[in-house]
Design a protein around this nucleic acid. Structure first.
Lengths: 240, 240
DNA sequence: CAAAAATCTGCGGGATCCCGCAAGACGGAA
DNA sequence: TTCCGTCTTGCGGGATCCCGCAGATTTTTG
């Protein structure tokens, strides 16, 4: 068995290396990559079917790398090993995992044993292992309560990119009013309804910008999500 | 000599611990803290005058912690040890360093030797040590060319928070028109002047939101900066 | 299948935003 | 002092945004 480690931090990389060696004695070769770009290339060349990957890397973060890797070989087993359980990451990952694929999401704060157990479960047993904290995020994300619909999330990303209502309407094939409708719902769910000063002209917010900020502070958005969205927007603009 | 280490990642923490031991044989006690809140408390209790600190922590990031520590004892020597040289971080740090204080900013990607050298320079020689990459960011940040004035940065933060023009005017004691004036300058410097489609109604941007996004992508803003700004806004709102 | 809920859409209006024009205020350089 | 650049402020107008109202369409539910 071969294992590919994709992680930009040298300390974490060597820690992972040791963990893999210890947890998987049947593994005869461990390869390392220090970012998403290199990781993709090596995965392709060595046909690695077992990958441990960080999410926050540059250039090319874990989600982008995983997407192209899974597109080429969907049976690849990937364990995401990240510092954070931001909703943006969780959403990003579950959007790209192929049907029936075995994958995992373990936080770096997890114990040694948990990491090793996850490695064996995913790579040997082909079982999914999702950190309970991440699982909680997933359910909150998908469930109705306090959760955001895909369409709401979509429009959140669109205004975060700085598109006008009209541009969003064109991009999503909607009427202008529908876009504004979704925006209203978004504002409501984010709770950005001029909350502090009800009737005064005081401290009023620009709802559009405020929504983006609140989403950021709640980790519904993060840098990596913005980066991806910006790239997608660029592609779309190119095709007009 | 006592050294306090404030760093949330256990691996990095123990690495730092070893580096301090190796670089500073005259150091007889090393204390560790895993976030800014704890770091502040320990710094106060133990009157630590020598601190190595990460920037990105939660709760309470390095900049916030450093600010209160320096406010209490400005002669404290702090070495910031961070993954990133985001302009937001660099700006945040140089905004709070007291006059004449010895401090440092070293990237985690720096070599072992560089870190140890920085430790000795700052803690023994009371000399400032700024990573050359960070230094470059500083100059770009302060210089005219491609750099942002304090007032421009200020208004950038304000719209990022989601304030309306009127609210900004009140907060900064300006007329409405002046606020809009500064915004124009900001848009120009960020290059968000409906660049792609000059006259078409196509792909137009909402300048206000777009400016925030571009600033984010350029790392002029980041999560930590937003967090701080949000806290400051909260304070200001409380005092009306 | 029918009722209910959610979503999409047009219309219209008040608030806000973006910005050109132009007049004053302030400070440094000739 | 005078001149010039930068910053500030007022006025005004066109574009955009936010949203209530109401009808049409789609989806869900019983």
């Amino acid at each position: 068995m071969k294992v590919l480690i994709v992680e930009d931090d040298p300390l974490h990389r060597s820690y992972l290396h040791e963990a893999v060696r210890a947890a998987l004695p049947e593994c005869d070769s461990v390869i390392e990559a220090e970012n998403g770009t290199v990781g993709e290339r090596i995965a392709r060349e060595y046909k690695s079917a077992h990958i441990v990957m960080d999410l926050q890397m540059s250039p090319r973060n874990g989600i982008e790398a995983a997407r192209t890797i899974w597109k080429e070989r969907p049976e690849t087993r990937i364990l995401f090993w990240s510092n954070y359980s931001d909703e943006a990451y969780v959403r990003g990952v579950s959007r790209i995992v192929p049907d029936g694929a075995a994958y995992g999401y373990v936080l770096k704060s997890a114990s040694d044993d948990r990491l090793k157990l996850a490695l064996r479960s995913i790579f040997i047993e082909a079982q999914c292992v999702i950190d309970r904290e991440v699982r909680g995020m997933q359910q909150k994300s998908l469930g109705q309560t306090n959760g955001f619909t895909d369409s709401e999330y979509e429009i959140l990303v669109d205004i975060a990119l700085g598109l006008t209502d009209r541009a969003i309407a064109r991009r999503r094939n909607l009427s202008l009013r529908s876009v504004q409708n979704r925006l209203q719902h978004l504002y409501e769910k984010l709770g950005v309804h001029h909350p502090s000063m009800p009737e005064h002209e005081e401290g009023r917010f620009n709802l559009r910008s405020r929504a983006v900020t609140v989403a950021f502070l709640r980790k519904l958005l993060n840098y990596s999500a913005l980066e991806r969205a910006e790239a997608e927007l660029g592609e779309w603009l190119r095709t007009r």
